[in-house]
C-alpha cells in the first residue's frame, strides 16, 4: 500500500481542533516533545515501511 494523501479523516475540522487542544498550555519545547511522541505512536500504528518512507519523502519535499 502506498501513502494515502487524499482526505481520509471524517470531520477533519474536529480532528484539527483536538490536535491543537492536545498542545494547549504547553511550552514550545513541550509541544515539540509531544509531536515527537505522536510521530512515533502513529508510525508504529501504520507499521508499513513503504508508507512511512513515502511519508518521510513527502515531508522533506513539502518543507
Amino acid at each position: 500500500m502506498s501513502l494515502n494523501t487524499h482526505p481520509n479523516i471524517p470531520d477533519p475540522d474536529d480532528f484539527y481542533a483536538e490536535l491543537l487542544a492536545a498542545h494547549h498550555g504547553l511550552s514550545e519545547a513541550e509541544s515539540h516533545a509531544l509531536n515527537a511522541r505522536l510521530v512515533l505512536i502513529l508510525a508504529n500504528h501504520i507499521g508499513e515501511r513503504d508508507v512511512l518512507r513515502d511519508a518521510l519523502a513527502l515531508v522533506r519535499e513539502a518543507g
Binding site: H32, A33, A36, R37, L40, I41
Partner: peptide, 9 residues
C-alpha cells in the same frame, strides 16, 4: 528529542 521521547514512551 526523539531519543528522550522513545524512552518516555
Amino acid at each position: 528529542l526523539f531519543r528522550d521521547q522513545v524512552l518516555k514512551l
